[in-house]
């Protein structure tokens, strides 16, 4: 078992944090995980990519080559990273920013207005990354409990309720 996950979008959307949380959740379940990232020199607005590999076996090469799961939270990110999807893989697009369209490599596509859902649930756009993790909780990569625990480990104190609302909104949308 080896899952290659790519979380992509724009700098400032919190995708690197989402990647860290996903990897930490996998560790909490006793699996191996590696998280890496690439970003430009900008603090906000540049392309942002976080990668997570979750496996039962040891992971040496730290980068995702072809994704089993691609989350695209910007049109540019979709255009850039959909080419790196594995045939028969899973695609998650945030339809707030990404236009829905057919994708021949996707076995399953989750077209969900992630950022809009997050704003509706919490009034805060910056919870979109946690909402995206809610969507991903429906994919069975890591258990919901571990994910929630990992989220609570990494978010600022006092924002627990807010982030859990965003998480539930994403999860419910994915399971609908």
């Amino acid at each position: 078992m080896k899952h290659n996950i790519r979380l992509t979008g724009t700098g400032g959307q919190g995708l690197i944090l989402a990647g860290i949380i996903l990897a930490e959740a996998a560790l909490l379940e006793g699996k191996n995980a590696i998280q890496s990232q690439s970003y430009g020199p900008e603090a906000r607005g540049g392309a942002s990519k976080a990668e997570v590999i979750i496996a039962d076996e040891a992971i040496h090469f730290p980068k995702v080559q072809e994704s089993d799961y691609l989350l695209a939270m910007s049109e540019k990110a979709y255009e850039k990273y959909s080419a790196g999807m594995k045939d028969g893989s899973v695609l998650i697009i945030d339809t707030t920013f990404v236009e829905e369209r057919p994708n021949a490599k996707a076995k399953t596509t989750y077209a969900i207005p992630i950022t809009k859902l997050a704003i509706d649930a919490t009034g805060r756009e910056l919870t979109a990354n946690i909402c995206a993790l809610g969507v991903m909780s429906a994919l069975g990569l890591v258990g919901e409990e571990a994910l929630k625990k990992a989220i609570l480990n990494r978010i600022p104190k006092g924002t627990e309720e807010l982030n859990m609302k965003a998480f539930e909104a994403g999860k419910n949308a994915a399971e609908a």
């Binding site: 860290i20 990897a23 191996n32 995980a33 590696i34 998280q35 890496s36 990232q37 992971i59 730290p62």
Partner: peptide, 9 residues
Amino acid sequence: EIVGHMREA
């Protein structure tokens, strides 16, 4: 940068 920025257990 690879080992500096990557996260693992």
